[in-house]
Simulated scan of single mutants.
Amino acid sequence: MYGFCRGVAVTGSSAALVFGAGTAAGWVRWTSLHLASFGWFLLTNALVAMLLEAVPEELTLRGYTWAALRERLGGVGAALGTTAVFLVTPGASTVVEAGVGRILGVQTPPMGLVPHGQDPFFYPVLLIVFGLTLVAARTSPGPGPLWASIGTHLTFLSVNRVAFEGVRRHTGWSARIAPEHAALLCLGYLAVTAAVFLCLRRWKRPSLGEYAE
């Protein structure tokens, strides 16, 4: 629980800081908050996202894959390798989806390197930054580091769905943001999140005296 809350707190506060700055600069305009709808969205989104996205993806990628690569390639190699696997996963999923659709006789979106409807340039960049941020959370100090990446993953999904897809998802609170500003804000708060985790790691690094002991 401590690790999960650490991931939520660091990612949520970083998003609040960056979106707050964007709002002050006039880049973001928020709708009025409908508290009941917003609360219901956060609850249902958390349940679905944890079961289908945050937990399985973190267990397989920042859990098993990262640990296996770290034994062979070290920390940097494991971080890059895990992020590379994360980058190709969406494209591979479109192939699997098309194959299953063909077996079942169901029409599916076209296969591609990125999911249908996503920007072919920005989406890979976002995945790289997001993947490295999740590795930073995974390697952060304190108990439950894998749960820190799960908390970061869930918070990222929640923030983006409210800020960028609020109207379509009926979140009870949404924002109007120009596409170029949306990209900067999204990458910006991920960068701040990663920086905070890295600073925590440096701050908690044992001294030479502690190593000697």
Rank of each mutant, 00 (worst) to 15 (best):
V85H: 03
L69M: 15
I150S: 05
R205G: 00
R138T: 08
L35M: 12
L42P: 06
A137N: 05
P109G: 11
T83G: 01
C5K: 01
V85N: 02
L80C: 13
V28C: 11
F4C: 12
L80G: 03
Y189M: 09
L35D: 03
K204Y: 10
L187R: 07
M50Y: 03
W203K: 12
L52I: 08
R29W: 06
G63H: 08
P141C: 05
D119S: 14
Y64V: 13
S174A: 15
G91T: 03
A21D: 02
T11E: 04
R168T: 11
A137D: 04
G172E: 10
G91L: 03
A21I: 14
P143S: 15
E57T: 03
A78F: 03
H34R: 13
T139M: 11
V10H: 08
G26V: 10
V18E: 02
L200G: 09
P115F: 12
S140N: 03
L198C: 12
G63E: 09
P143R: 14
V95F: 11
G63I: 04
A195G: 12
L134D: 01
S14T: 01
A67K: 14
F122I: 04
A182L: 03
L47Y: 00
H116F: 15
A148H: 06
C199N: 00
P141T: 04
W30N: 07
S207Q: 08
P124N: 07
V55G: 02
G117Y: 13
G63Q: 07
G3T: 13
P141V: 08
E58A: 13
R202W: 14
Y2V: 05
F121G: 00
E57N: 05
P143K: 14
A178Y: 02
L52H: 01
G12N: 06
P56F: 07
S13D: 01
H116S: 14
E180H: 15
A25D: 01
R29E: 14
L59V: 13
S174G: 04
R168P: 00
E53V: 13
T94I: 06
V95Q: 03
V129D: 07
V167C: 00
G77E: 11
A16C: 09
G188S: 10
A36T: 12
R6Y: 00
C186W: 01
A25F: 06
L51V: 13
E165A: 15
N45A: 15
S37L: 13
Y211M: 13
L80A: 13
E71I: 00
A21L: 15
A68S: 12
A163P: 02
S158F: 06
P90C: 10
R176S: 15
A183K: 09
V192D: 02
V76S: 11
V100H: 07
A137K: 04
G101P: 03
S37W: 13
G99V: 05
G105K: 09
M111G: 00
V10M: 11
A212S: 14
E180T: 13
G166K: 06
H170S: 14
G81L: 08
F156V: 09
P179C: 09
T108L: 07
L187I: 05
V96F: 10
W173Q: 04
P115V: 12
P143N: 12
A54M: 05
R70I: 01
S32M: 05
